[in-house]
Amino acid sequence: MRILHVIASISKVKGGTSQAVLEMVRALQSSGVTAEIATINDSGRNLLDVPLAQKVLYCQVPIYFFPRFSPPLRAIREFAISPPFITWLSQNLHRYDLVHVHALFSLPCTLTMALAQFRDIPYVVSLHGLLCQWSLQQSALKKQIYLHLIERWNLNGSSGLHLNSYLEQSEISKLGLAAPSFILPHGLQISSKYPDAHQKLRYWLNLPSDEPIILFLSRLHPKKGIEILIQALAQLVDQRFTFLIAGSGDPNYENEIYTCLQQSGIGDRTRMLGFIEGEKKDLLLQGADLFALTSYSENFGIAVLEALAAGLPCVVTPGVALSEVIKQQDLGMVPEMNEAAIANAIRTCLLQPEVTKEKGDRARQFIVENYTWDKIAANLVEIYDAIIQNQPLPHRHA
């Protein structure tokens, strides 16, 4: 079984989706599937420094990188245009049994779906939340035109739409797409326990050994609702805590967040750490007391999954798809999307540290049992095989 995965960028600055695709392909390889990625060397304002138009091993994954057309106009760069990619795709697509396309509204993905239809090669599309209501409302006119003129035809021609949650399925159903769909969550590579993470994190940040730490770890983007989280924390004047923001985004938006912190009065209780990865990321997740993500829309929430796997209880809002799992399994709290409700949930967690820790211990065990990549990859291989054999989709929920 030969599977080609196509995504516009696998750069870390593009958020959790890029990392998830790398881990998915790595897990598929471990399960015996010949899986490769074709992508563009796009890295936001920059380009990845990688060999081009040849197969290279990148993060232990075989990847073909192609050069992005990079004019000064940002609106054009965002489409990840790459003529060499188009040429390579037209010459090599026939070598694969199935194509797995990740995301929409970029030229590599759009052309891959169109060419696969033309060549009668089956393809699956992972939507990664891009057709959820909140996402479609951003740059709404451009997306609606793109969707109705081009992507609807591509989506309806797919052998399966990969959704991450029932919440995403509910929102997608309103679009009336003809293609079948299946729900399969992201997986996770479980990190080893970091020795004495609680004390080491506070030593690194020069904080008292008993300082409560609230962690926001995600890409800085307006949909993450961090301004509401800041205003909620500002209501907790009677509580002792340090707020950590680990993530990066557009520099202008980062400045807006900094200004919001200062105006809210919690600037002196907050550390903006920037983009964090590797051992320091593990240290943050395992050494903090509480994870908070008050997102307007999160079709899954990889950062939430990472926090739960680290044994870190979570406060998330209903727009985060994993909120239902958190409520059902009692792995944290799910307040409504308003400042008072969020503040009350965080206060409750801070005032009940033993109960909160129990939720965290339960969270790690639950994730280990249900969300590792080997389990997800096994389900995905079953779906690929059914499509290639022209059989009904297993795990189908539509």
Results as ranks from 00 to 15, higher is better:
T110C: 09
P67W: 03
P71A: 09
H100F: 03
S82H: 05
Y64S: 07
A75Q: 15
P83E: 08
F85C: 09
F66A: 06
N92V: 08
Q91N: 07
S70A: 11
F66Y: 12
F66C: 05
F65C: 06
T112H: 04
I76G: 00
R68P: 13
L107C: 00
L104A: 05
H94D: 14
H102R: 04
F65K: 04
V101F: 01
F65P: 02
H102A: 03
L104P: 04
W88E: 01
I81F: 13
I63M: 05
D97M: 12
R68A: 10
E78N: 14
T112A: 04
T112E: 00
F69I: 15
P71L: 06
P62T: 12
V99T: 03
S70L: 13
P72Q: 15
P62H: 10
L98N: 00
T110P: 02
D97C: 02
S106C: 00
L93M: 12
L73G: 04
F66H: 12
P83K: 13
F69V: 15
Y64H: 08
Q91D: 12
A80F: 11
T87C: 14
A103C: 14
L93A: 05
I86G: 15
F105A: 05
N92A: 13
T87Q: 14
P84R: 09
L111V: 02
S90Q: 14
H102D: 07
R95M: 09
P108A: 01
S82Q: 06
F105M: 10
L104K: 00
F79A: 08
R68E: 13
I81D: 02
N92L: 10
S70R: 04
H94N: 13
P83G: 14
R77N: 11
N92I: 08
C109A: 01
D97L: 10
S106L: 03
T112V: 05
L89R: 03
